[in-house]
Design a protein around this nucleic acid. Structure first.
Lengths: 259, 259
DNA sequence: TAGTGGTCTAGACCACTTC
DNA sequence: AAGTGGTCTAGACCACTAA
């Protein structure tokens, strides 16, 4: 037997997907449904929470529940790291994807803080240094308008970045060309990277920071960036709202017998 | 003000993460907590559901709520497509990752059904054919023991696979070397691929099929496989339980100025 | 059959937004 | 102040498991 709250949620889901309930239009108020039907407040509430977790509606106290506008996915491909963008041009690497997808970059959409910290285990392993060694952490929160899209924290080894503008703890992006340009100017040209992705439940702080919808998951991205000789010059951890992005990778089918 | 159910959930989360509550050990029963503390049944229930969504506990009627065993992540890298594995060896490409991570392959862990269908929009676009054109859909559910890990449906164009054992609608894997080997034998050697990932809420059928825990998300993977001349010979859609996998990709930093 | 989690209700109260 | 969603309770009943 299907629970009543699920039946109700599926009924509304159908109505939203067919367009019968248009984006931006208000959903019936909980108390109205309680009066009209036989359902109780908690039951309707559960149904609405399920719809909210699927990204179909938004609820807020005082304002009511409305059908969500469709937010287009931001597609992240490896082209966003194109050397031409950060080495020759004046785009900042981290916002290259936004430029590529036709959105304009506005100043003030990225805040940054730089601090010296002891390397957590994950960071130490990536850089091949002892746990607790000193590293620079450069954390930024990337926004699009008022809406935060993801957080990104890069970890650098002191000998690679000390004396550069990367460790200048001022606010704002790292300047023309971004972090990769700074490393390039310091003699460390990035050559290849590894990205690793996994999905998980967000922490309470992340829900607040990224303004996540209730029930929404995040994708954690680990990026290890190396120079041609294999030196790791950056390890970065990104946390993305899971429904706002897709990731795409092209690669040759490997053939270990030929190498 | 933090809701009580969240407070309670965080208390238990802490206890589980520190190991104070060991995997396999039972959580306090809901009715006991109601008797001892001032909380009500629904409130404790909400807290338990939150823990379950995080993958920390498992609840079932009659059996109670227990701390979950830690399930190791399965790491998927592009090495799982190594030509040496499916062309020269006798491993099936789709289970190569399991072999790599030390798990043994058991017969009967993969079921398959082949059918001729009209190409859905996504499939048509990937193959560059009209919507509704006939394609072969090869759907399998991959399990590890009793636990399903992911579903994978490959779409092939008739002219590439007709007459091969791929479209033989018998059960079981596609045979020695898997689907890529069949394509290879038919004169279509795969050369490069694109994988695209996104996370989303599972459908009701997927929850049942993959035995997902309540609140758990899935990652949908789109794989487009091409020969050296750019012909798309396979488009596959995979649905993975989000917490059971991580994906990893290595690539050179692109440089459009040099090509 | 006893004991577990899951659903549902009716009503109270709280937090927030809008007027 | 009025009206929205969110939390909480006490208790009823249901669904499932194990002895």
């Amino acid at each position: 037997m299907k629970p009543k709250w699920r039946e109700l949620a599926e009924k509304f889901e159908e109505e939203i997907r067919t367009g019968e309930r248009a984006p931006g239009s208000p959903m019936p108020e909980i108390r109205d449904l309680v009066e009209k039907g036989e359902r109780s407040k908690e039951t309707v509430h559960k149904a609405y929470k399920a719809l909210e977790a699927q990204g179909l509606v938004t609820s807020s106290r005082g304002r009511g529940t409305v059908v969500r506008e469709h937010v287009p996915l931001k597609r992240l491909g490896i082209a966003r790291y194109d050397k031409a963008k950060w080495r020759d041009g004046d785009e900042v690497a981290f916002i290259a994807d936004r430029v590529a997808s036709g959105r304009s970059y506005l100043r003030g959409e990225q805040t940054q803080t730089v601090s010296e910290v002891e390397a957590p285990p994950l960071v130490a392993r990536a850089h091949g240094i002892p746990e607790g060694a000193r590293v620079y952490a450069r954390a930024r929160l990337v926004k699009e308008g008022d809406q935060p899209t993801h957080s990104l924290t890069s970890y650098y080894r002191p000998e690679h970045v000390e004396g550069t503008r990367l460790v200048d703890p001022g606010p704002g992006p790292a300047g023309k060309g971004g972090g990769f340009r700074v490393l390039y100017d310091a003699g460390y040209e990035i050559d290849h990277m590894t990205e690793e992705l996994r999905a998980r439940v967000p922490s309470a702080e992340e829900i607040q920071l990224l303004q996540l919808h209730p029930g929404e998951w995040v994708v954690e991205l680990h990026r290890t960036t190396c120079t041609a000789d294999g030196t790791v010059v950056e390890f970065a951890i990104g946390v993305h709202a899971a429904t706002r992005f897709s990731w795409s990778y092209d690669f040759k089918v490997p053939d270990s017998a030929q190498e």
